[in-house]
Simulated scan of single mutants.
Amino acid sequence: MRLGAPGTALGRFLHWLFEASLILKGLFALAETLSGLALWGLPGNAVFNIAQWITRRELSEDPKDAIASALLNAAQHFSIQTQSFYGFYFTSHGALKLIVVILLMRGILWAYPGAIALLFGFVAYQLYVWSLHHDISMLLLTLLDLVVIALTWREWTVRHGRAWWHR
Rank of each mutant, 00 (worst) to 15 (best):
V101I: 04
F18M: 04
S92R: 08
G41Y: 03
G7Y: 08
L151W: 02
F90K: 02
W53T: 14
L141F: 14
E61G: 11
F13L: 14
G36K: 01
A9S: 12
A124I: 12
G26T: 04
G121K: 01
A68Q: 01
Q52G: 11
L143W: 10
L118W: 10
K64Q: 15
Q76Y: 14
A124P: 00
I54D: 02
I50D: 10
T142S: 05
A51C: 09
Y86V: 07
L24Y: 15
G36P: 00
L104A: 02
H133K: 15
D62M: 10
A66P: 07
L141Y: 14
L17S: 13
D65N: 15
A29F: 04
L104W: 00
A75W: 06
G107N: 04
A75R: 05
L104K: 00
R12G: 09
L17M: 12
I116Q: 05
T82R: 13
L42N: 03
G7E: 14
L59P: 07
F28K: 09
L39D: 01
E32F: 06
A124Q: 07
L72T: 06
L10H: 08
I136H: 10
A75C: 09
L37T: 04
V47P: 02
A51K: 07
H15C: 14
L127A: 09
V129W: 11
L10V: 10
I116Y: 07
N49L: 15
K64G: 11
A115W: 02
A46L: 08
I54K: 05
S60K: 14
L141G: 13
